[in-house]
Design a protein around this nucleic acid. Structure first.
Lengths: 129, 129
DNA sequence: CACGATTTGACAACGGTTGTCATGACGATT
DNA sequence: AATCGTCATGACAACCGTTGTCAAATCGTG
C-alpha cells in the first residue's frame, strides 16, 4: 500500500488551477498563473505535482510541436483530444473504431505492448487566423 | 526560385545513413553512426541537414516519449507509423478512414487548419521483452 | 584559377525539465 | 496542544536535446 500524498497548500493550488482551466497548459503557464494569483508555488513543486497527477492518471499529458508537455484535467477513461493550437481549448473525443484499427495493425505486424498517440490540432472558432 | 543546397560531403553522408537505416533514429544517433564509420560530421551539421530534409518533406520526423525528435526516410505521401520502442524498426501504415474521421470531428467542432498526429508504438517480434 | 556565397564545426547559449539538499510543513501519536 | 518522523517544498544548479554564433573551410560558378 502506498501512502497517500500529503494535502499541502501547494498541491491544492495546482489542482485548483487545473479545475479552472478548460484547455491544456504547460507547467510554466500554471506556475505563472499561480504567481499572478498571489498563491506562489515553486516551479519544481509545480512540475512534481503535475508528474504525480499524471502518473495517477488524474490529468492527461501531451507534447506540443515545440516539445513542451501540456497538462489538462480530463474525464476518466481512454480518449483523445481536439486541441486549439492558439488558446489550448480542448474537446475530448472518442474513436472506438480507431482503437480497434490500431490494435489490429499492430497485431498483424507482430508488435506487442502496444500503445498509440492520436491528437488532432487546429484553430478553434474563437481564435483569429 | 530558391537555390539548390550544395552537394557537400557531410550532407551526402547524412543522407546515406538515412538510406541504410530502416527505422527512426535521433540526430545524435546518426551523428554517432557517422563517427563510428569514420565519416565524422559535426553535430550542428547533422541537426541542420535533418532540418532541411524534414522541411523538404524528404524525411519524416516524430517525437518519442522522451521528447527527442526521431528521423526516418519514408515514402512520399501522408502516412503514419508503427514503431518499435526498442529498436526503432518501423512499418508505414495508412488509414484512410481515420483521416476522414479526424477531419469530420474537427469540422463538427468548428476547428480549421487541422492536422493530426497518429503513431502506434509497441515492441516488435525481434526485440526481447 | 579565383572569387563570393554557402556550409561547416567547435563552442556557447537556450529552454524545458529534473536533481539536490537544507529548510519547512503535514499529520499521526502522545 | 506539543512532539516527532517523514515527506514536501523551493532556490538553485545540473542536465540534455537543440539552436545560435562566427571564423575558417568548401563549393561551384565565372
Amino acid at each position: 500500500m502506498v501512502d497517500a500524498p500529503r494535502n499541502t497548500r501547494q498541491r491544492r493550488a495546482v489542482v485548483a488551477i487545473l479545475e479552472d482551466l478548460d484547455g491544456f497548459a504547460s507547467a510554466q503557464e500554471i506556475h505563472d498563473i499561480l504567481k499572478r494569483r498571489g498563491e506562489s508555488v515553486g516551479l519544481s513543486t509545480v512540475y512534481r505535482s503535475l508528474q504525480v497527477l499524471a502518473d495517477a492518471a488524474e490529468v492527461d499529458a501531451l507534447r506540443n510541436d515545440d516539445g513542451e508537455v501540456l497538462y489538462r484535467q480530463c474525464s476518466a477513461g481512454h480518449h483523445h483530444h481536439l486541441v486549439c493550437r492558439s488558446c489550448g481549448r480542448t474537446v475530448e473525443i472518442e474513436g472506438p473504431s480507431v482503437e480497434r484499427w490500431a490494435d489490429k495493425i499492430a497485431d498483424e505486424n507482430g508488435f506487442r505492448d502496444v500503445a498509440h498517440t492520436l491528437e488532432i490540432f487546429g484553430t478553434c472558432s474563437s481564435c483569429p487566423a
